[in-house]
Design a protein around this nucleic acid. Sequence first.
DNA 1: CGGCTTTTTGCGGGTTTCTGCAATATTAAT
DNA 2: ATTAATATTGCAGAAACCCGCAAAAAGCCG
Lengths: 248, 248
Amino acid sequence: MLKKERHDFVMKQINLHNRVLTSDLVQLLNVSEDTIRRDLQEMADDSLLYKVHGGALSKSYHSTFDDSSVYAKEAKINIAKKTTKLIKDGMVILTGGGTTIIELVKQLPENLQATFFTISPLVAVELAKYRKVEVILIGGLFSKNSQITYGGHVISQLSEINADLCLLGTSAIHPTNGLTDTDWEINQLKKTMMSSSRKSAVLCISEKLNISLRLKVAALENITYLITELDPSDEKLTNYQIKNLKIL
Amino acid sequence: MLKKERHDFVMKQINLHNRVLTSDLVQLLNVSEDTIRRDLQEMADDSLLYKVHGGALSKSYHSTFDDSSVYAKEAKINIAKKTTKLIKDGMVILTGGGTTIIELVKQLPENLQATFFTISPLVAVELAKYRKVEVILIGGLFSKNSQITYGGHVISQLSEINADLCLLGTSAIHPTNGLTDTDWEINQLKKTMMSSSRKSAVLCISEKLNISLRLKVAALENITYLITELDPSDEKLTNYQIKNLKIL
DNA sequence: CGGCTTTTTGCGGGTTTCTGCAATATTAAT
DNA sequence: ATTAATATTGCAGAAACCCGCAAAAAGCCG
């Protein structure tokens, strides 16, 4: 293995995962730690990556820190962390799009082994960073607004899936009106996704609570998990305490 | 063993394995290390390969990863601008993935009204910025390496399309061996895409010229346009001047 | 053909690069 | 504060490299 080949390999890993661990590289490339460290050092000198204790990070990842533009990021990370507990090895999961879901994907455990169906290209790209995760992107018309695929073709493919868990972002949720939305297409998609999954989890920042929109997606009774950044005992959630709905 | 013969031998090895070791060549060709080194040095001067400590690497291999920074980008923008002239309102276009294609999409005229089918989520996201462009993302298994969808499902959907123009990035192109690739899946995809389109354009930075890889995608005769950053009259392109292939 | 130049090739010896080891210091985490 | 993981530093052997030289091979010309 030539030095340059190692460097290329490292770059590939970094572009893929946004980070590398020294110890992983030692195993993968079968050389000593010193060699890896020297490699990383050199590449850092060429400012191809950002070296840190234990490995290295993607340069772009650090400089493109306008991730902060994601609204209510803290809350979403909190939600994401709770949600990961629902996800076990071997599961088949169906997901929509949205920043909340993307945040969730970033929080998944490194070695998760699962199958994800998604209608969101961005979620697919993010999921692809996990080695043991199989990603199936459901194709169809591509929506400019919501950055997901939609239309009859998508619906028909979704309806053929049999997933363990369905992860949905939220437009609005209300104690009596349940899950609602404004866009008819998205409404259809969400309905289909829920009926294709045994269980469904609704990821919802607290601001979306107690809002009701025009189109009904599902009644509270048909949701399995409601996940917010609040403590499950928070008083804002008392109205949602019904049988069959687990609040996390 | 004449020098020229050695050089040819080295090129063959490099096209096959993407790399050679000085020590291997010494054994295989039965000459001294110095001779090999001199050979590699000369070939590197002619920029036929990339010389490193211990051997040499394929030019294409090397440039795939990290050279996407500045120099290649200029070339890609140049290619993109030429390619936009092929694209007219009302066309149905099929595209693959890759940075060259992304660059192209960024250069499209603001008010283009066309239909794009693509297997690349990133291309889809980029295309979605154009108001009058309809984007259909073809779904299927999602490849972690190449960031495109692939597999039987994709192939079967591609084969149902009837496009006006097919835009392909290039792994390697060669005067006699035509368009080639290393990955079997991608090979299949490109073949299908070409047969689903009336015309096909190959976007190719000049570094990828005169390189031949293992799997054949198409003969030069079956390509409609070859687009590089060079002037069409550049001598590097003379070997590609055949009937039916328009060089831009 | 015989001398002349040029090219090619191998060799010796000195230099640089690469890589792993060991001892020591630093950092992260509990 | 203690411990385990990770970094740093210097070193040494091996491998690869570079440079100049000279012999052999090939080309050139009268």
